[in-house]
Amino acid sequence: MRLRTLPTDIDLLGHMNNGRYASLFDLGRFDLLIRTGILQIFQQKGWYGVVASSTITFRKSLNLWQRFTIETRLHGHDDKSVYMVHRAVVDGEVYAEMLVRSRFLRRSGGIVPLDELFEALGRPDDLPELEPWMTEWATATALPSTRAAAPSVWE
C-alpha cells in the first residue's frame, strides 16, 4: 500500500506518532486479506483474526507529507499462531518493522485450529521456519490464558 504521512499522523515532535504505525499496518493486513481472497473465505466461514502480540522497531522517522509504502508478508507459523511482518518503506529502505502474532477465532466462539485454517486457505509452500528469537519472544511476552486468573499485581 502506498501512503503519505498526514497531519493527523504527526505527534508533538513532528514525526509519525509511534501508535499510528500499528493502525496503518492493520490496513496492510486487511489489504493482503482482500487481495488474496482470504477475507471472503473468512466471512463465509465466520472467522476473524486477532492480534495476540506484536512488537515494532523504529529505524528512521517518517515526516509530514512523506510518501511511504507498507509492505506486508506472511512470515510463518507455530502450532497456534500465524506470524506476519509489516514494514514502512521509503525508496526501498526500511524505516520501521513490526512483527505480529495472530490467532484466528470463530464468530460463534472458539479458536480456529491452524490445520483447519490451512485446509481452507492452503498453506504456502515457501514459508520459512520461525526464527528462534520469534518463538522465544512469543513465549516471553505471553499473558495467561483467558481462562486463567490474571491479577494486576506489580512486583
Rank of each mutant, 00 (worst) to 15 (best):
E97P: 15
E129G: 13
M84K: 06
V153C: 10
R103K: 09
M134V: 12
R67A: 15
Y95N: 09
P128I: 00
E119S: 11
K80S: 13
G37K: 03
D78E: 06
V90A: 12
D31R: 14
P128H: 02
T72R: 07
M16A: 10
M98F: 00
V85G: 03
A142W: 01
P7E: 00
A148P: 14
L62W: 00
Q66L: 01
I41A: 04
E116G: 07
V94C: 15
D79G: 12
T5E: 01
H86Y: 04
R101K: 11
T5D: 01
R20Y: 02
T139G: 11
L6M: 15
R4I: 10
T135H: 05
E155Q: 14
D126G: 10
V50C: 10
V89L: 05
T135A: 13
R107N: 11
F118C: 08
V85Q: 08
L99C: 07
L127Q: 03
P124G: 05
G92A: 11
R147V: 10
L130G: 07
W154M: 13
R59K: 14
H86A: 03
E97F: 02
D115K: 07
H77A: 15
E93F: 10
R147C: 11
S61R: 11
T141H: 04
F58I: 03
P124I: 01
P132M: 01
P132H: 01
P144W: 00
E136S: 12
M84P: 08
S23I: 05
A140Y: 02
I34M: 08
S53W: 01
A140E: 11
F30G: 09
T141R: 06
K60Q: 15
H15S: 08
T55L: 08
T72K: 08
V89M: 09
M1H: 11
Y21W: 01
R106Q: 09
G19Q: 07
D125N: 10
A22Y: 04
A149T: 14
S102A: 15
I38L: 10
A22T: 11
G37Y: 00
S108Y: 00
H75M: 08
S81V: 04
F58N: 07
F104L: 01
A52R: 08
H86W: 00
G122E: 00
A52V: 12
G92R: 09
A138W: 01
A88G: 13
L33E: 06
V51H: 04
F58G: 11
G122W: 00
I56N: 05
L33H: 05
L117A: 05
L39E: 05
F118W: 13
E93V: 15
R29K: 09
S54V: 03
A149Y: 06
D9N: 09
D79M: 06
P144S: 05
L114P: 14
R73F: 05
D126H: 10
R67P: 10
G28I: 02
E129Y: 02
Y48W: 03
G14L: 02
P124M: 02
H75S: 13
D79W: 01
L117R: 03
F68M: 05
E97G: 12
A96V: 02
N63T: 12
I34A: 11
I34V: 14
A52I: 09
S54H: 09
R35M: 07
S81G: 10
V153F: 06
L143N: 13
L114A: 10
T69G: 14
W154F: 10
F118G: 11
A22W: 00
